[in-house]
Design a protein around this nucleic acid. Structure first.
Length: 808
RNA sequence: GGGCGAUUAACUCAGCGGCUAGAGUGCUUCCCUUACAAGGAAGAAGUCGGCGGUUCAAAUCCGUCAUCGCCUACCA
């Protein structure tokens, strides 16, 4: 008998030919006319200027498994690909490439440089996605449902602006000048979510102050001596006896001779530093809060370029870090520093993008209200189903730590423009109508804007307008991705109404506080809905040594390299089996991806073996007990896999399926059924052979379908060769309930133990596995498969007892 | 400082109240048996981080300590 499948192993060239086939007619487009329920996946748009690395590729592969599985269970899957092209990362790349600061050139020029970066940005990521077999709805850019979208397209940006106009009118957005995180390098205000902390080396300076009334010295520790000129108060803990006599007295700041009140305050801890501290405006966010609560007048001594201003006296013009050094020197000269203790533990807030130290500067910015919605947000976080459930806590913790509203305006260039104009004469605000894409820095306000009357300022009649120059935080854009893909702006009462909330948000744990949090907040404020049903949070793929992949460490693995070395299928199988990305990080190892390839070879050859036998047209009237057993085994596994897949767990079921293929099926069932399936010597009845062939094909069929989401190429190839159908268009298999409930006489373990004992006995005697044995005693439960046991092992006399015994 | 997670075979990981604790890789011995030598068969290998406790029963639950990660915070 000749197998229908010719080659002896799976190879990645077969992937290429299937890719070519799919290129000609892409089978995964979104069908708007379909009556099936929509299952929507809000995929994370990767940045285009750097290609995705293997860790990200792993997450998209897993998302693809979710999508493919849902298609097989009767959903119309919305699985669009988006590309992120807005914001600081693009501007940073442009600055690096040109060697110039964008903030120091005309805006048009800066934008031209960004466009250049975007044009040159390779589409390596998109190519990787294609080769990995990811079934996004479309690879074509467009505005249609499911088409590839870009976050800087006029269509996307107009939705971003529309949401701003809406929220502004609803009073959910306001403008205010308050002290906030400011990055001197990027020259813009930042939200808390964009600030990271790093331990940086520095010093504790123990500085000598004088008490005006008593003339005594007090020693105050600080890491920011350059802020001495902004000191607002000196405080000590109310229960600290050492300083109690100073209550209400006046401290004199050294060098500046500034007089400030000394008070007791619970936020001063007795065992920190010297137990008495100075509060300056502003070393950190806590200082801001303190000044606000104590109604102190802050002195802002730092300019927005990160240099000291006139309030800093002799430090004026110096950068913050130079000023710190200079101040320390001056204090030392005057013998005002008692001690200087080096520390590597000084926690410094830094800009997530540029890594510059954050300063606190007041600027007028737009804010989205969020503090007053903390309780609502916690309710929403509890409503969404998190996979894994423990990931919910990350979001709850973050909500707890929110203390100020969300500043959304940025003083940068390549991002969505804040769509506003102002009358130059009377500062009347001009708000354009929803639906357009506006660039106020280079356009006049459009007709129909609020605040205009006949093209003139409604209030003063002037026609001289100033366009807003600020842009939005990129998260203000990103947080509407589910609205965009569900066509909120095009069909709020149609497609959106019908198909929201979005079924699934898959994303990394590190952007829970940004992407997930902001999306849930903003989309709820706009639509009144909790925008996601399910949230799948992935952990990270680490490098071979267990280190996080990052460009700076130089340990980034390109998926193209993996594709070239092994192809998509071993990588996909590895991604499913290696670890549980919902719960923990795991490592990327080429050795282990290659190892996954062995299972492909096994599965391929199992298929090849089965392909030798014709598939019976219908189910034989009677199946042998062995065949009934294997069918109930595979059906049970498929049934459990379905339940796990629904919970986004591919790891456990696929590992189990892999084990089933190698052990239960290939090593034991196939060995036992071979002779009967061949039936070349006519030892078995025709019906018995038919039963074997039916069971073999049944198992193959189930394996192909249950693995189709994981191994789209291999299953497509095998199923296509043997069934002439596309496995991806098949339904996910339902078990044979009758067989599943029927109890077999024996278990898989009984069978394996018996086989192993016989093989071991032969081996111990130095016999080949093909040689026969005279007698064997097997457990009674195996009696129903006597014929198969005899034929497989060549047993002449078979007896039964409670114990297993082999005689040769 | 607070929180979360991890610690299981040489390595990478499953298992998370109940039969002698599993898998892959690696290792040892034998075998080209007509699906597969990128294979097959057999095998060695673990006081499940330490210490206490709950239970008839503990990798599994509780407490505590240690080490390593991550998140979070007003450590002057």
């Amino acid at each position: 008998m000749e197998p229908k499948i010719k080659s002896k192993r799976w190879n990645s060239e077969l992937e290429n030919s299937i890719s070519e086939e799919w290129k000609k007619s892409w089978p995964y487009g979104f069908d708007e006319k379909s009556k099936k329920p929509v299952y929507s996946i809000d995929t994370p748009p990767p940045y285009v200027n750097t290609p995705v690395h293997i860790g990200q590729a792993t997450t998209y592969v897993l998302m693809d498994m979710f999508a493919r599985f849902r298609r097989m269970t009767g959903s119309n899957v919305l699985f669009p690909l988006g590309l992120d092209r807005n914001g600081l990362p693009i501007e940073m790349a442009a600055e690096k490439k040109s060697g110039k600061k964008l903030t120091e050139m005309p805006r048009k020029e800066a934008i031209t440089l960004c466009h250049k970066i975007l044009e040159e940005s390779s589409l390596a990521s998109v190519d990787s996605f294609r080769k990995l077999g990811i079934s996004f709805n479309s690879w074509k850019k467009g505005k249609g449902i499911g088409e590839l979208y870009e976050t800087d397209s006029p269509d996307y940006r107009s939705l971003t602006q529309e949401t701003f106009i809406d929220m502004l009118k609803k009073g959910l957005i306001y403008e205010d000048a308050r002290v906030n995180n400011f990055c001197p390098g990027c020259q813009t205000t930042l939200a808390d979510a964009e600030v990271n902390y790093e331990n940086r080396a520095g010093f504790f300076y123990n500085v000598r102050f004088r008490v005006k009334e008593t003339g005594e010295d007090i020693i105050i520790a600080t890491t920011r001596p350059e802020l001495l000129c902004t000191i607002g108060m000196v405080i000590f803990n109310p229960s600290d006896k050492k300083y109690r006599h100073l209550e209400g007295k006046t401290a004199v700041a050294p060098l500046f001779e500034k007089e400030i009140p000394i008070k007791s305050h619970p936020s001063a801890e007795m065992d920190k530093g010297t137990g008495i501290m100075m509060v300056c405006s502003f070393g950190d966010l806590a200082d801001i809060r303190f000044f606000r609560e104590e109604k102190l007048e802050p002195v802002v001594a730092i300019n927005k370029d990160g240099t000291m201003n006139k309030h800093a006296g002799f430090l004026e013009g110096l950068t913050v870090s130079d000023a710190r050094k200079k101040m320390a020197e001056e204090l030392e000269k005057s013998d005002l520093i008692v001690e200087k203790i080096p520390t590597s533990e000084h926690r410094t807030p830094i800009c997530e993008r540029s890594k510059d130290a954050i300063e606190f500067i007041d600027m007028p910015e737009f804010y989205v209200k969020q503090v007053e919605f903390k309780a609502d947000m916690k309710k929403h976080a509890k409503k969404m189903k998190f996979f894994a459930p423990k990931s919910r806590q990350i979001m709850l913790d973050w909500i707890d730590s929110v203390s100020i509203d969300w500043p959304i305006s940025r003083r940068r260039f390549y991002a969505t423009e804040v769509p506003l104009w102002y009358c130059r004469k009377c500062e009347q605000k001009i708000v354009p109508p929803k639906g357009g894409y506006y660039q106020p820095w280079k356009e006049e306000p459009p007709k129909g804007s609020d605040g205009l009357k006949g093209g003139k300022c409604e209030k003063c009649g002037s026609s001289d307008f100033r366009g807003e120059e600020r842009v939005f935080d990129t998260w203000f854009d990103s947080s509407i991705s589910p609205l965009y893909i569900l066509k909120y702006h095009k069909e709020p009462k149609g497609f959106f109404e019908k198909n929201s909330p979005c079924s699934l948000r898959p994303q990394g744990k590190e952007i829970i506080r940004t992407w997930l949090y902001y999306t849930v907040l903003k989309d709820w404020l706009l639509t009144g809905k909790v925008i996601f049903d399910d949230v799948w949070i992935n952990y990270h793929i680490l490098d071979e040594k267990g280190k996080k992949m990052s460009k700076s460490l130089g340990n980034v693995i390109d998926p193209q390299k993996v594709l070239k070395m092994f192809g998509a299928e071993p990588f996909r199988l590895w991604a499913a089996i290696e670890g549980n990305l919902e719960k923990t990080d795991f490592r990327c190892s080429f050795e282990r991806i290659q190892g996954a390839g062995k299972t492909l070879t096994k599965l391929w050859n199992v298929s090849r073996f089965i392909s030798m036998f014709p598939q019976p047209k219908s189910r034989p009237g009677k199946l042998t007990p062995l065949d009934e057993w294997i069918i109930s085994e595979v059906d049970g596994i498929v049934n459990d896999a379905k339940k796990s897949y629904e919970r986004y767990d591919f790891h456990n079921p696929v590992a189990r399926i892999k084990n089933f293929i190698w052990e239960t099926f290939a090593s034991h069932y196939m060995e036992l059924v071979k002779q009967r399936a061949y039936n070349e010597e006519g030892k078995f009845a025709k019906e018995e052979a038919e039963s074997a062939r039916y069971a073999l094909h049944h198992v193959l069929d189930r394996l192909m379908r249950v693995l189709a989401p994981v191994l789209p190429f291999l299953t497509h190839s095998v199923y296509g060769d043997l069934r002439r159908k596309d496995v991806h268009a098949e339904a996910f298999p339902e078990p044979d309930e009758k067989l599943l409930k029927k109890k077999c006489d024996f278990s898989a373990e009984d069978l394996m133990t018996a086989n192993s004992a016989i093989w071991k006995a032969k081996k111990d005697k130095g016999l080949s596995l093909r040689e026969g044995i005279n007698s064997a005693k097997l457990p009674k439960k195996l009696k129903s498969i006597e014929k198969d046991m005899k034929a497989t092992h060549g047993i002449k006399e078979l007896k039964y007892g409670s114990k297993l015994a082999i005689k040769i």
